[in-house]
């Protein structure tokens, strides 16, 4: 049985259209012009236990809105959500009991108090037994180094420290589903690394199901086997990252510097450019391997230097986004 099931989810907001100029502002004061904005149009997916799913899309695609609906904060306009078999619309409390949520752009920690106070409160809210609490704290301390920050007031923490605190707060009650909404936003390399390591660790040791929204494709590359790409409120891709790369960018480029000007052709490789002693080939991964191609060319002329270029994940995602919008 899937842990999370989303069927034909739709969310529309009424929003007041701001009108132009002073005249418009005055008009808006008395007779606001309302329009309906569709944040999420038709989204369906299902996620099995233990998966880490990258939920990505450009700004305003409806990622956060979906996460908020799945955690019972927003009510869908239509469609169905089941988390652990329970609908967050019907029973928010029952769903969030087994759910951890981190919003990268805000904190659930108490701003004015030491970090430990927030943990103590959550321990009581979720009714976490003492042994489980200390076990979880010890496990998280190892990766997130909580001991060094637990006595600092939250407002004095750096963004990276705060995010570590927020992650720990979301995991204190050992939830089996974790929603991470841009957990690495604005973090430095070290902090990102710690957070990715933590996500990996809990997924491996506890089989925690994780949905991760992010704009950092490093997160995706390191953590997610499966990605769901949405744009304008609909799913445009859902599958493994490798599959997506194979489909959108099945080619590689081989840049070869010869000692002299050469023009060597191969039936499986297209010559993209040939300037001076440098030749750039493009070939399909499934038609010929890079090694075979190099060996063939090397047999014909002496090679000085080679470089193999792969389509970057950024390019792939960009193609996926624009592909979705031109359809």
């Amino acid at each position: 049985m899937p842990v999370i099931e989303v069927k034909h989810l739709k969310k529309q907001f009424k929003s007041v259209r701001k009108q132009k100029g002073l005249k418009g502002a005055v008009k808006g004061l008395f007779r606001p012009e309302k329009k309906i904005v569709t944040a999420v149009d038709d989204i369906s997916f299902s996620i099995e236990r233990g998966e880490i799913v990258g939920y990505i899309g450009p700004n305003g695609a409806g990622k956060s809105t979906t996460v908020k609906m799945m955690s019972g904060i927003l009510r869908p306009t239509s469609g169905e959500i089941l988390v652990n078999g329970i609908s967050p619309v019907k029973d928010r409390k029952a769903v969030v009991k087994h759910l951890g949520v981190v919003f990268g752009q805000r904190t659930q920690l108490y701003w004015d108090l030491r970090l430990g106070e927030s943990f103590e409160l959550l321990k009581r809210i979720y009714d976490v037994p003492d042994e489980v609490y200390s076990e979880n704290m010890a496990m998280m301390d190892e990766i997130l180094d909580l001991k060094s920050i637990v006595d600092t007031p939250v407002r004095q923490l750096s963004l990276g420290q705060r995010m570590r605190g927020d992650l720990a707060a979301a995991m204190l009650h050992s939830p089996d589903v974790l929603f991470l909404d841009e957990p690495t936003i604005g973090l430095d390399v070290d902090a990102k690394h710690a957070i990715r390591r933590f996500i990996k660790e809990i997924n491996e040791t506890r089989k925690t199901t994780i949905i991760l929204t992010t704009h950092d494709l490093g997160d995706i590359q390191e953590l997610c086997k499966r990605i769901i790409i949405i744009n304008k409120g609909v799913v445009i891709e859902d599958g493994s990252l490798d599959e997506l790369i194979d489909r959108i960018a099945p080619y590689r480029q081989l840049v070869i510097d010869f000692y002299t000007e050469q023009h060597i052709e191969h039936p499986n490789a297209e010559i993209v450019s040939c300037e001076g002693s440098r030749t750039v080939y493009r070939f399909m991964k499934n038609e010929i391997s890079a090694a075979a191609l190099i060996e063939y060319i090397g047999g014909k002329a002496k090679i000085k230097d080679i470089r193999l270029e792969e389509a970057s994940i950024d390019d792939i995602i960009r193609v996926a986004y624009s592909g979705g919008s031109t359809e």
Partner: peptide, 14 residues
């Protein structure tokens, strides 16, 4: 106003 209502609502409390 600040949207922090979201972090109140992710807790299993009234």
């Amino acid at each position: 106003k600040s949207g922090s209502i979201a972090t109140d609502m992710i807790k299993p409390i009234n």
